[in-house]
Design a binder for these strands. Structure first.
Lengths: 218, 218
DNA sequence: GCTATCCGGAACTCTGGAGTTTCGTATATG
DNA sequence: CATATACGAAACTCCAGAGTTCCGGATAGC
């Protein structure tokens, strides 16, 4: 959060005349994320963001001091839109949980986030703040869910407690990012299932040699 | 290859006076790759490339029509520097081969290529030619080696012929790219060994339950 | 040594985007 | 209705980088 009015909260709001519209802030941030995903940081202009948000360039600069601050806020606010964290199913098996996470909204959300990450990629090494914000908003939510599912599998005794959760939880984010960003191939349900059955489950000792407790047939 | 003098090869070389220096071409291309890795496509200026190559900006434009063409050529020429393709060991086991591929020059080369890829990331979606060149020069060489090692393991009967080579060969490139570009953590020998023993070998049925033929202790 | 050619460097134009200012209008408060 | 404020739009300045031009010096062939 780096908006201009962070310090003075609402104490000095005008007692007369028009008030600043808080909803407009979100419209601008959303527009910034859109443009960021489409054109990247360098291709993005303030005019693009403003016009897409139905605002003027001056309005943007009334609320953020610079393009950098706007992008930083826009990325940081992306994680608010995460509804995945709430709806985590418990199917009784690790494979069931992993497969249940494959849903069209989840896939679409991930691809949009990856486009934003691609647009920021060249700046990550020179802007640590931005890199941290991007990591927190784009990478961590997905990895956090995977870690939770793996911990749940350990608790129910399905997999060994020696499992390298940190490593395993990054398999699907890594391979999805690579396929989408670098190979530019679609990330569909079939691909995700292949990762689960061909890589993740074998890595935690639930490979086809030791069949999964429930229904491995899909 | 998109250089100006692609069509007329050497037939109309000047019979009098100074000749164009071919070595300078490579110096400029190398400088372009360096700057690309350090600052990304948008941060890179022709002046940077020229001065680093010990050349003038005019010299660059004498040989390439535009910044885009220069970058395209620079990326395409990266694959020529691949000496890995020659020195592929045969240790007798898949694990031995994979571990033998872990060498400081190989790691350093991979990180440099990934920085270039990061610098190009935002343009890949809008410049298909560039995306193809980047894929051919950065992604494919590494995946090709992995596919070769896996095929060798199949031939010697070490792993099943049903193995999904396409998928398995992308595990380490994906996880290395993710760790380096997005997590910005170092890619060291320990991490690579963890991937081999914790993910790749289990995925091909050579997990700790079926111990590797040679020495799994490392 | 002569000469055609290429070189590095510097000065140049031109374009586009960051950030600022102005202005007429819309609107909530009183 | 009056007023203070925020608004969208447009015009503005400023600057950096793409691409061009010019020039004195270096160099390979004759």
């Amino acid at each position: 959060m780096t908006q201009l009015d962070d310090v003075h909260t609402s104490s000095d709001a005008p007692k007369l005349g028009r008030r600043r519209d808080p909803a407009k802030d979100q419209q601008i941030l959303d527009a910034a994320v859109e443009v960021l995903a489409e054109t990247g940081f360098d291709g993005m202009t303030i005019d693009m963001v403003a016009s897409r948000a139905g605002a003027g360039k001056a309005t943007v600069y009334r609320r953020w001091t610079s393009k950098n601050e706007l992008v930083l806020d826009a990325v940081a606010c992306m994680k608010k839109g995460d509804l995945d964290s709430l709806a985590i199913p418990d199917t009784g098996t690790l494979r069931g949980d992993l497969v249940a996470m494959i849903r069209p909204p989840s896939i679409h959300d991930a691809e949009r986030k990856l486009k934003v990450m691609a647009g920021l990629a060249s700046m990550l090494s020179s802007a640590p703040e931005l890199a941290d914000a991007a990591n927190e908003a784009i990478v961590e939510p997905r990895a956090r869910i995977n870690r939770m599912l793996l911990n749940r599998a350990i608790e129910r005794g399905e997999i060994s407690s020696d499992t390298d959760i940190q490593l395993i939880s990054l398999i699907s984010p890594s391979m999805v990012a690579y396929r989408s960003l670098i190979l530019r191939k679609p990330v569909d349900r079939e691909f995700l299932i292949t990762i689960i059955d061909g890589i993740i489950l074998p890595a935690v000792g639930l490979g086809p040699t030791a069949p999964a407790p429930s229904a491995p047939a899909e």
